[in-house]
C-alpha cells in the first residue's frame, strides 16, 4: 500500500510541476492546486498509513496520529486561500494587460516558448 501511495504522490507532483511550468496563468493555478493536494498527502503520510481507525479517543483501540491531520486540515484551508488569491490575481492581470501570459512583457515572443 505504501508503494502505491508513494507512486500516487509522485505522479501528482510530477503532473502539477509540469502544469506549473506552463506559460499561461490558468494551467499554473491548476498546477498549484494539484501540488497542494500532493503536498497535503505527503504531509498526511508522515503520520504513517493506518486503515479503518479514528483519531478519536475511545473510538478504537489503535488511534491514528492526529497531529499531521490537524496540520493538513489547516493546510487545506490555507491552500484554498492561496488558490483563490492566485486565480484572482490572474484574472486581475488579464484585466489589466489583456493577456494571461506569465512571462515578462518584453520577453521575446518566440514560437513554441509557451
Amino acid at each position: 500500500m505504501e508503494t502505491l501511495y508513494a507512486i500516487t504522490v509522485g505522479t501528482l507532483t510530477a503532473c502539477s510541476v509540469f502544469l506549473i511550468l506552463r506559460g499561461r496563468s490558468f494551467p499554473i493555478v491548476i498546477g498549484l492546486t494539484m501540488l497542494s493536494y500532493a503536498v497535503n498527502l505527503f504531509l498526511f503520510s508522515t503520520g504513517r498509513l493506518i486503515v479503518n481507525e479514528l483519531p478519536i479517543v475511545g473510538a478504537s483501540d489503535n488511534t491514528t496520529d492526529p497531529l499531521p491531520q490537524a496540520l493538513v486540515l489547516t493546510a487545506i484551508v490555507i491552500g484554498f486561500a492561496m488558490t483563490a488569491y492566485s486565480i484572482i490575481l490572474a484574472v486581475r492581470v488579464r484585466g489589466e494587460i489583456g493577456s494571461d501570459e506569465v512571462n515578462d512583457y518584453n520577453y521575446a515572443e518566440q514560437d513554441g516558448q509557451r
Binding site: T3, I7, T13
Partner: peptide, 15 residues
C-alpha cells in the same frame, strides 16, 4: 523530464 524527476524524488522520499 524535469517534472518526472521532481515527482520521482518526492515519491521516493515519501516511500
Amino acid at each position: 523530464l524535469l517534472a518526472g524527476s521532481i515527482g520521482g524524488i518526492v515519491g521516493t522520499l515519501n516511500y
